[in-house]
Simulated scan of single mutants.
Amino acid sequence: MAFELGSGAARAGFRLVEFAEAGSTNQEAIAAARAGDAGRCWFVTMRQTAGRGRRGRDWKAPDGNLAATLLLRVPHDPMTAATLGFVAGLSLDEALRTIAPDLQLKVGLDGFDGAGAPGRADRLRLKWPNDVLLDGGKLAGILLEAEPLTEGGFAVAIGIGVNVVAAPEGLPYPAASLSSLGYAISAPRLFVALADAFASVLRVWDEGRGFASVRRLWLDRAAGLGEDVAVRIGDRIVSGVFETIDEEGRLVIRSSQGKVRTVAAGEVHFGAVASAN
C-alpha cells in the first residue's frame, strides 16, 4: 500500500482505508458511517474524480495530489463539531512545517519582503474558515460534512484536499502546489505527517473543551488578521477589518464606523480585493 499511518496516529487508535481511485473520499467516509463504522478512520487516495469543495465547487485530485478524509463520530451539537475545521487546518499546517521547515519563512533579497516584520514572513497561513495558503495561493481546502446518527450525535467527514503535484486552473483565486514551488513531497509522505499531527491537535481540541487553545494557535497563523476584509454572503458583502475569530469560530469584523459583526460563513477576500469590494 502507498499510504500508511504514522506511529502517533496508530497509537491513538486511528485506522486507514486506501483507494487507488475514489469519486469522493468524503462520500466514502459517510457511506462507511451509515454502514456502522465506528469512526477514527482515514479514507485516502491520490486520485479523486468527483470531490467537492465549499459552495459546491468541484475539487478533483489528479494523480499525485492528496485527498484524505477523516471520519469521526461526535456527540456534540453542530456548532461544536464545526470547529473541527480549525483542527484540520492546524494539523495540515503543522504537518507541512514538520516535513518542510523552510516553508515557514521567506526572506526578501533586500531583507524585507513587504509583509510582516522586516526580513521575515510566514509563507504558510490559515485562511478563514478552512483554507491553507502558501505564498498567498490556495494550497489546500477543507470541507466538513456531517449527518445525524440514529443513536445520537453526528458522523463528521473532515475532507482535506492538498495540491501536492498540481494546482487546479481557471479558479477565481490564486492557487499553489508544492511541486510548482520546488517541493518534491509525495502525498503518502505528507499523509503520514498529517495523520500524526491530527492525532495531536485532536487531543488539544478535547471533544471541543479545548477549542480555546486551538483558537489561539489558529490565530497565530491566520491570514489577514488586522487587515481589510470583505465577505460575500449571498448577495450581500460585509466589510471592515478582520479582528479575530470568536469562541465559536465565527469571523469577527469591525466596520469603519466601529460596528462589530460576526460571520458564520461566506466567501472571504483580503487586502486590495477587499478594498475594491
Rank of each mutant, 00 (worst) to 15 (best):
L90E: 13
T80C: 12
S256H: 13
D135R: 10
P168A: 08
T98V: 03
A2Y: 00
L5C: 06
V192E: 15
R15N: 09
A272W: 06
Q257V: 01
A12R: 06
N277F: 14
T25A: 07
R47D: 06
Q257E: 15
R73M: 07
L178E: 09
F270E: 01
A272R: 14
D206S: 14
A146I: 05
N277A: 14
I245V: 15
E4W: 03
R73Q: 12
A223D: 05
G8P: 00
L133V: 10
N130P: 03
F43L: 09
S186W: 07
D37H: 12
E243Y: 00
W59N: 02
N65G: 04
N163Q: 09
D93A: 14
G266K: 06
V74A: 12
E169L: 12
F43C: 05
R97N: 10
T83W: 12
D110H: 12
V44I: 06
G6E: 08
L103F: 11
A155K: 01
A184R: 15
I158Q: 02
R250Q: 14
V165T: 13
R97K: 13
R236Q: 15
A193S: 14
T49E: 10
R11L: 09
G64N: 02
G226P: 03
G116P: 06
V162K: 02
L126K: 04
A22F: 07
I245E: 04
G8T: 09
A265S: 15
V87D: 11
G208M: 10
A187I: 03
G208Y: 11
R203F: 00
A121D: 10
G182V: 02
L225W: 03
S275G: 00
G108E: 03
A272F: 04
E207G: 14
A9Y: 01
V74D: 08
G258Q: 10
L109I: 11
A117W: 01
G51Y: 08
L181C: 12
A22N: 04
L219A: 00
T244A: 11
G210A: 05
A155D: 02
G13E: 11
A31K: 01
L181T: 02
K106H: 11
